[in-house]
Amino acid sequence: MKNSSFDPSRRIFLSQSTKASLALGIGSSLVGSSLLSACGSPAGDAVEADITTGFSQTDLGYDFSALEPNIDAMTMEIHYTKHAASYANNLQEAIGEENVDTEKPLEEVLKNISRYSTKMRNNGGGHYNHELFWKIMSPDGGGEPGGELMDAINSDFGSYQQFVDEFEEAGKSRFGSGWAWLVLDNNRLKIGSTPNQDNPLMDVSEFKGVPLMGIDVWEHAYYLLYQNERPRYISNWWNVVDWNKVSERYTALKS
Rank of each mutant, 00 (worst) to 15 (best):
K104L: 15
L110M: 13
I191N: 06
G44L: 10
D198E: 15
K208I: 02
G44Y: 08
N244Y: 06
T18Y: 14
T194N: 05
S173W: 03
T52W: 03
Q161G: 03
T194W: 05
E108N: 09
T118C: 03
Q197C: 07
Y62D: 00
I113H: 10
H130S: 15
L132W: 00
N70C: 13
D151I: 15
E77H: 09
N186V: 04
Q162I: 03
D63M: 07
V183G: 05
I26S: 11
E206C: 00
R115K: 14
W243N: 01
A43N: 09
M137G: 03
N154R: 11
D101Q: 09
W179T: 14
N89K: 14
F133W: 10
S159Y: 00
Q162S: 08
E229C: 06
S28K: 15
L182S: 06
T58L: 15
L149E: 14
S29K: 08
K208L: 04
D45M: 10
T18I: 15
N239V: 04
E148Y: 02
A23S: 10
A180I: 04
L30Y: 05
Y87D: 07
T102G: 03
S29L: 07
W237R: 06
L212T: 06
P195D: 01
N236A: 08
L91F: 12
A94T: 01
G171F: 02
S15L: 14
D242W: 07
C39Q: 04
A221Y: 06
E229T: 03
A170K: 15
